[in-house]
Design a protein around this nucleic acid. Sequence first.
DNA 1: CCGCCTTCCTTGATCCAGTCAAATCAAGGG
DNA 2: CCCTTGATTTGACTGGATCAAGGAAGGCGG
Lengths: 159, 159
Amino acid sequence: MPMGTTWADRLRAAGLRVTRPRLSVLQVLAGRPHADVDTIVTAARALHPTVSPQAVYGVLKALVAGGLARRIEPAGAPALFELRVGDNHHHLVCRSCGAVADVDCTVGAAPCLAPSDTAGFVVDEAEVVFWGLCRACQVGTPGVTGQVARHQDRGGAHA
Amino acid sequence: MPMGTTWADRLRAAGLRVTRPRLSVLQVLAGRPHADVDTIVTAARALHPTVSPQAVYGVLKALVAGGLARRIEPAGAPALFELRVGDNHHHLVCRSCGAVADVDCTVGAAPCLAPSDTAGFVVDEAEVVFWGLCRACQVGTPGVTGQVARHQDRGGAHA
DNA sequence: CCGCCTTCCTTGATCCAGTCAAATCAAGGG
DNA sequence: CCCTTGATTTGACTGGATCAAGGAAGGCGG
């Protein structure tokens, strides 16, 4: 990605208009690799105090449709969004606090991409989610680390 | 699994009481490998006309907790349940009709289980979902296969 | 620079999966 | 057989996400 490329450029390249809510959301996502809608709305309001949640939903939908963002949906948690698109990377998700980390699918060629028996399916994507505990939660303090706390301490969860 | 083992035995072995709703749900799941709650409720009513949806939720929760069933949650779709537990197999999901097929994780040892860089996470499970089109949907008639049609008309649900 | 048209955002309602809680009912040990 | 514990019923409710109507602003033509 050339340094001179701005978010506005990217939006236009995707055929999308450049608007304040969109730039705000992009800026938020640039700083938080895996944010949920609620987090994005809150953070975006710091840049554009009047954005509505629905606007964010709309923006995210447009960004995903335009190939500028990717939506990931860990089981049992609200959707998260990230700007890393194009490379088919996967995710590590903490069962305790919900923290998410990227993982390159470096496993050689494509073991993960080639199921042994496709049962007649034509596969176009392999989605891998590694479940476990992040470093902070292993130590015993669930989701209190900065990075982690960010994605909602919906963490240990509701109960 | 010994042939003589009944569902009732399994329930007791898991420390669960043997009740009509539970047996009904188990019987439904035995016939439909990947059913969603709605499908289960409908089918279970054929065996036990008065079961409530909440009862099914409760039963499924108990079955999952007792290790008799497994819950899978494809992104953007309601949860599905299956009785195959113990073997860590994965799933093929049809983008068009939602059909699900099992895939053994035959990729040798554990390429899928070992991310290249765990970023400090302790991983205990790798979940793999292969997205694509099932045979029926490739042909051009989305979701008309019996088993398949069941979980998915949510798409065109209204109007 | 102005105006128009399209697209986007705002407001508000609605949907759906799943959960919670109180009261009733039944499984199965004593 | 009764009692205790656990399961189910009924009903309300939450939270994430979508839909719909109207108003605002992006950005092109003139």
